Simulated assay, not measured.
Amino acid sequence: MSTPTQELAAAGVSIWLDDLSRGRIDSGNLAQLIQTRDISGVTTNPSIFQAAIGNTEDDSYDAPLAALAARGVSADEAIFEITTTDVRDAADIFRPVYDATGGVDGRVSIEVSPDLAHDTDGTIAEAQQLWAKVDRPNALIKIPATKAGLPAITATIAAGISVNVTLIFSLERYDAVIDAYLSGLEQAKENGHDLSGIHSVASFFVSRVDTEVDKRLNAIGTDAAAALRSKAGLANARLAYELFEKRFGEDRARQLTAAGANVQRPLWASTGVKDPALPDTLYVTELVAPGTVNTMPEKTLQATFDHGVITGDTITGQYADAHRVFDELASVGVDVADVTQLLEDEGVEKFIASWQDLKSTVSAALAAAPENAR
């Protein structure tokens, strides 16, 4: 009998783990999850590295930090070294998956500094630095879909670098992200790059939409509002997939794919359920469609493996209902555009806060490194 994660992969969904640590790499846990849970990639962010390096029960960063302290590096330099090393080593573990899928999967993502979220030139420069430092073809450089991030996405793709566009909440911004990707491919073609080697995913956040919309629905307090609870996140993601099908079916995209380019796959992020009243696999089993990625925290991955019910495509037949949900949200007074802008702003702020926490943790660790290691 097949497992739910095998069934999910067979339905065309790439399962990526939304977590990484030196402990996972060194213990063999990451390799084991490839074999037993069908994961085919990893995503990281500042919060994930903060949790990993700040974990007092994991001593796997002690030696690297001591060695860096001996070199007298700054906290920023130490973070750059540690995170790129983790991503490089994870990419090596996933290299067989990358080879077996022709470069589609086996991907490991690393994010530019959140401090650069509104700095186009700084983002472009750091994306190039990260790509060169990791030095693995199966890396993805994560760039946020802020207004300043859009031209950085184009420039990074144009340089032949594969990109994970993150922090997408609205359909309007996703449309702009697709434009940024296609523009990057057009420039990459002019620059002489092999388009087949450039890959990208567009990370559309799901559960955070429900959290904010449901808070507003509860405040409205009507029966009509209550009936819409926990429906916005799925509707938003399904309409994103509808937009994906439309945009990559147009002549502009088709001309690029005919020249060897890859489509930019939708990736469902923030798929851990925040409301305990909801099924813990909701944002997995209800977002199944070919050519998508679902990046899951381990808790969601294990829940899916244990009791996820995969019933095939749960997106493309739901477009009319998703549009209806959006119409009804507007009719009860929920401003979805305001919701998604708030979530983008909060998302950047949260990553900046995690980044500052990470710098503080690393600074303290460098200062506390044994004198004899220096």
Rank of each mutant, 00 (worst) to 15 (best):
D119Y: 03
I15L: 12
A145S: 13
D105W: 01
R95T: 12
N138S: 09
A155G: 08
D38E: 15
A52N: 04
P151H: 08
Q129N: 08
A31Y: 08
R374I: 02
D105R: 01
A320R: 08
F169P: 09
I161Y: 10
D179P: 09
V112T: 12
E344G: 03
G184A: 07
G54V: 12
L116S: 11
I48S: 06
H307G: 13
V177Q: 00
D18V: 02
Y181P: 01
G12Q: 01
L234I: 15
D306Q: 14
A320G: 12
V73H: 01
A152Q: 11
L30F: 05
S2L: 06
K133M: 11
G41M: 05
E126T: 03
S183E: 15
G221H: 06
L287D: 05
P64H: 08
Y61P: 13
S360K: 11
L195I: 04
G221M: 02
E328R: 09
D179C: 06
D26F: 03
A78Y: 07
Q128M: 06
A31V: 03
Y174T: 02
D313N: 14
G272P: 02
H118E: 15
I153R: 05
D321S: 10
A322P: 13
A51R: 15
S162H: 08
D58I: 09
D92I: 03
L217W: 02
